[in-house]
């Protein structure tokens, strides 16, 4: 099972119930803004504690309130690409990339050179995050997530705010990861076109 969720999270005033299971290689999570899509990703990554329920990703139980299971974020194996990238401002691009790579608990499925090449960020390695453009920041964030040897990927609006050409290149890359590497992907998107192209299963959060 790629993802199997039945949990309630409450990041704000209103509790959000997420219940779905998917065996697809790439599952899209859609819904109106404020429906709690990002909160669901946070709950899977372990940075937001559900009130109750159960979360299974890539065949491993990450959270189960009934059984008392609650893995810390560092033990969950999420490759999380945040919507706001969250590059570390005090580390150059290369040091951002190697941060998770050095801490990986299992063999990675892609090498650093390959990731750098794939995302076209070789010329950025010595730069500080504050000097990068929006598209460059996004690509570095994706590379950083791929390099921590994740068991599954959480992509939060990875193509938004990119120009058409860059978005196309990234979409092609996501397709390659989907088709060539057996890592389940959960994608949050508000673009119907993007979902249509990439997702094998669509989950709607209301």
């Amino acid at each position: 099972m790629s993802f199997d969720l039945d949990c309630t999270v409450q990041p704000g005033d209103r509790p959000i119930r997420a219940s779905f299971s998917s065996n697809a290689r790439l599952t899209a999570l859609v819904g109106p803004s404020g429906a709690g899509k990002t909160s669901v990703l946070n709950a899977i990554a372990g940075t937001l504690h559900p009130i109750s329920g159960r979360i299974v990703a890539a065949g491993e139980v990450l959270f189960d309130s009934a059984a008392g299971v609650d893995l810390p974020p560092e033990a969950r194996g999420a490759g999380y690409v945040f919507q706001d990238a969250r590059l570390f401002p005090h580390r150059r691009v290369l040091a951002n990339l190697t941060y998770g790579e050095k801490l990986a608990r299992r063999a990675g499925w892609i090498g650093r050179d390959e990731v750098v090449d794939l995302l076209g960020i070789g010329h950025l390695l010595d730069r500080w995050p504050a000097t990068l453009s929006g598209g460059e920041v996004r690509r570095v964030a994706i590379a950083r997530a791929l390099l921590c040897a994740p068991r599954f990927l959480l992509l939060d609006e990875p193509l938004s705010s990119l120009d058409a050409e860059k978005a196309e290149r990234l979409a092609a890359l996501i397709e390659r990861i989907r088709d060539e590497i057996s890592v389940p992907i959960l994608l949050v998107s508000h673009s119907a076109e993007e979902v249509e192209r990439l997702a094998e299963q669509v989950v709607t959060l209301t």
């Binding site: 560092e74 969950r76 945040f82 706001d84 921590c148």
Partner: peptide, 18 residues
């Protein structure tokens, strides 16, 4: 210090201490 950066470090495999 943005806590979300700490969260990002945790998802990348860092213990709370690291």
């Amino acid at each position: 210090v943005d806590r979300r950066l700490v969260d990002a470090a945790r998802t990348l495999g860092a213990s709370p201490g690291r």
